[in-house]
Amino acid sequence: MNTTLDPAAYLACPHCDTLHHSKHLAATERARCARCDTLLIAPRARSFIHVIALSFTAMILMAGAIFFPFLKIDAQGFSNASSVFQAAMAFSDGLLLPLSIGVLAMIVGLPAVRFAALIYVLWPLTHGRPAYRHARTVFRLTEEMQPWAMAEIFIIGTAVALVKVAGLAHVSLGPAFWAFCALIIVTALKNSYMSSWTIWDAIATKKPI
């Protein structure tokens, strides 16, 4: 067993634990795990600014998606409109209330909190200043929240629901629907600009000790 290795010089693949020498890559380089091909480091030129800009965009779209009408249905003189908020609140009567809160968190709450948290973490770093207080905890929670933010799954759910209702009544799509679609695209773009390792490195090294 080799115990002379200096931990600071290495990174371990989060998926398979293989040790790699850690180094700072040029803006266009990418590092993948030699064994399991997990993307380890992917810095991109000015990527923090991109992530911040896209997070701002996503938050504005999210506000639109919540407050504008989402879907409207017409059948034989009757009509009904629903917002995203009302869709989440569909379970609010009786015992299903906790499910309403869960759904609201998954489609609106967690995505919005993640965007805000990313801006909080990255804003000082882009200006070469030390990270704000608790940036470490905020970014770790942001990473842990990721699988539970399900805005894109909600849109697929909308598509399935639309097909189910299509035969029954006439459905019109409101501005919130399109805002939500744009939100999905912006989120995907943002994810492609993000490299966790690079952000962790920036938080750790620019922090005054």
Partner: peptide, 25 residues
């Protein structure tokens, strides 16, 4: 794939919020 199963819950939520047409459906 795991999180995508949640799609069914969202379908139920959207249908319940949207299809409220009084006596018709």
């Amino acid at each position: 794939v795991g999180r995508w199963s949640m799609v069914d819950v969202f379908v139920v939520a959207i249908l319940s919020a949207l299809v409220q047409l009084g006596a018709i459906a």
